[in-house]
Nucleic acid binder design. Structure first.
Length: 273
DNA sequence: ATGTCTCCTAAGAGGAGA
């Protein structure tokens, strides 16, 4: 089961890239962020023609998230429980045995901004939500633009970014608190080449110079982590004409190809688990 | 280095957000 996430920075502008990527990569579920369009303006027909279903929570001009998938998402939920928010930043649905969340976490702007306070409040609500849904499902994927680079190795110039928004210690502590619920950063389950990033500024040829940050993540609940065989960043679409500033990230889970399957293989050392 | 991109409003640039 292949699950991916991509901040597309306008689905209207990036639709050709998304359709090409779906065709080439064939993910079972693609989580989208920053649609920047109302739900009614989502390209439903094009996505359907590509063979995909969609759960969409759009908004005019800013934000907006979606789950597009080869089979319909069940029990869709928009937003975070007990957190009143006019900004459309979260949507969840169930695919086979897996609950998938597509999240567009707030950017924060700067440490002295009201948006930074909102960012930390939003993450507190996400933590509460994940703690809550862990009671209903042991198999959870949290996919999206977290707007947090978890460690210095996720930043091209850690000295320059020290303490800045996306890298500040309160934000990193917030990210670690999500992991403390039992979630794994799937990218770090595997040995990775150095300097792998998911976002590069549009300015100053940042992509060509690989001046990037790894801020897009695929978190796996502890029950799902043993099923993960691959977690990658596909930087190819970032090199296209009119790219999003983010690259798609994706992972592969084994033993979950059949959406109805309810067993997950354990580690190789415990064949009977 | 105020660099680039996308959206909005509103009638032509300018601001918000990232």
């Amino acid at each position: 089961m292949k699950i991916a996430s991509w901040n597309v920075n306008s689905i209207k502008v990036r639709l050709p890239h998304v359709l090409d990527w779906l065709q080439a990569q064939q993910p079972d579920v693609l989580c989208l962020q920053e649609l920047k369009c109302e739900t009614s303006a989502f390209p439903w027909e094009a996505v359907e023609r590509a063979g995909y279903h969609a759960c969409v929570s759009g908004q005019k001009a800013y934000n907006g998230v979606a789950l597009i998938s080869k089979y319909p998402g069940l029990d869709p939920v928009v937003g975070l429980s007990d957190f009143v928010d006019s900004q459309q930043r979260a949507i969840a649905a169930t695919f086979g045995a897996v609950r998938v969340l597509s999240v567009y976490c707030p950017n924060g702007e700067s440490l002295t901004s009201d948006k930074y306070t909102y960012k930390l409040r939003w993450f507190e609500a996400l933590w509460q939500e994940l703690q809550r849904i862990q009671k209903d499902s042991q198999r959870i994927v949290v996919a999206g633009d977290f707007n947090i680079a978890p460690e210095d190795r996720d930043v091209y110039d850690p000295q320059a970014w020290r303490g800045e928004v996306l890298c500040s210690e309160p934000e990193r502590a917030t990210f670690r608190r999500l992991l403390d619920l039992g979630f794994k950063d799937s990218f770090r389950l595997f040995e990775q080449a150095p300097q792998r990033y998911s976002w590069w500024h549009y300015r100053a040829n940042a992509f060509k110079r690989n001046m990037g940050l790894r801020i897009d993540h695929l978190l796996l609940s502890s029950a799902l982590a043993p099923a993960c065989r691959t977690s990658e960043i596909d930087i190819q679409p970032r090199a296209l004409e009119r790219p999003s500033d983010h690259a798609p990230v994706w992972l592969d889970l084994v033993g979950l190809e059949n959406p109805g399957l309810d067993s997950v293989p354990g580690p190789a050392s415990s064949p009977n688990s």
